[in-house]
Design a binder for these strands. Structure first.
Lengths: 215, 215
DNA sequence: CTGCGAGTATACCGACCGGTGTGGTTACGT
DNA sequence: ACGTAACCACACCGGTCGGTATACTCGCAG
């Protein structure tokens, strides 16, 4: 029984998928001052590329062209900055994804025999475009790997993001079992794209999704 | 094109799955002195539970009831100790898994219509037994999350482990496409078991594997 | 008896960690 | 003219990081 509420599984249509209304952890982003925005930008890139614990606040402040003082005035702590980094990334990924899905024909749920290029496959297309050949994988999985055993404020953000993706696949497929199957493929694809030895993960994933939808 | 050789994909029978012969990275484990074994044991638990970067060498030496001097005399560096931790874990997981598979009927490859309880499902049973309700997930994925962007000696160990699992699924299914599908489900299951919000990952995975094998 | 590998104990190193404090400079709203 | 929020520069804090050095004890094989 997770600490965060799981009202997400009641999601039934894409229109309800505005994250803030669905999950208190996925609150709207706070406004940022000029230096604050530079700090969050610098921190986001450094955190993603090198890991959360490997990046110190001095480096963040220097990269942003500002000072530690300003960092702590704006964000209060490094932990809060980490949580905000993941929160903003989750928002941006959802916007990126929903914008692509909004252009889809999107009649009924995606099942066997639906028109080619189902919305589920669009998610995997979006994932590939989002990743763009990067080798650092899923920011949420990475952060959880570093912080999972703690009560760090970023942990519930990670769980909320994963729950939202699962709920999205449930909606797109109209079937909880199928949604779970595709969600497992989605998470597996992210891992193999990153730490896998072969380069065929993307095409493997597409074929697997097609098999799952046809089953 | 990964730096490590990928001769693993030529694996065709389970008998060839002795890791040392297959992949130079998965070399046999070096012998350990008494204090060395205590150090590696302590380091393994601490690394897995808290993450590689979050654990200092002082803590490892104290936990093992020895000193930093001995640690550096035996292992040379923290990086080498980390790589050895993952290497030993990979060996133990493979032994655990292959022992369970050796008891299976194991006629031909697992496909649709094969006897209930295929060997592929045995892998997922073994995974669940191996994890045993832990919430810290895959040690290799976690380590890669912390070290992936570097040239740390543990990185090739992680890639070799993932490549070996992929090759194993290819052998068990007798079909590269199907092996890829099941491997994605395997990696996804590990992630969702760990960072997922719901507790149904294990049963979801079993059902998804059955669908994949039947497809 | 000697040499040596293993282990213990402890002190030390420079670098970096997250976080705070002080003081001063802009720009803006009232 | 005044207060205030945002920002910068810089010094400082205790603690921890990975790694090294010195000196000593023990068991064992030649």
């Amino acid at each position: 029984m997770p600490a965060t509420p799981t009202t997400l599984t009641t999601l039934t249509t894409l229109d309800e998928a505005t994250p803030a209304a669905l999950h208190p952890v996925l609150r709207p982003l706070p406004p940022l001052t000029a230096a604050g925005a530079r700090l969050l930008d610098a921190a986001s890139e450094l955190f993603y590329e090198r890991g959360v614990r490997a990046v110190g606040v001095d480096l963040i402040a220097d990269t942003a062209g500002t000072t530690k003082k300003t960092l702590y005035d704006r964000f209060g702590s490094k932990d809060a900055l980490v949580a905000l980094y993941l929160l903003r990334r989750a928002h941006r990924w959802r916007e990126f994804l929903l914008a692509r899905l909004a252009d889809a024909p999107a009649a009924g749920p995606d099942r066997a025999g639906s028109p080619d290029g189902t919305r589920v496959l669009l998610v995997f297309d979006a994932l590939e475009a989002w990743m763009g050949g990067q080798r650092r994988g899923c920011a949420f999985v990475n952060a959880y790997a570093e912080l999972g055993g703690t009560d760090h404020p970023a942990v519930p953000v990670v769980r909320a993001e994963k729950a939202w993706m699962r709920a999205l696949f449930d909606v797109l497929t109209g079937d909880a079992g199928l949604g779970a199957h595709v969600h497992l493929l989605y998470e597996g694809t992210l891992v193999v794209l990153t730490a896998g030895a072969g380069a065929t993960a993307a095409v493997d994933a597409r074929r697997a999704v097609e098999v799952a939808l046809a089953g």
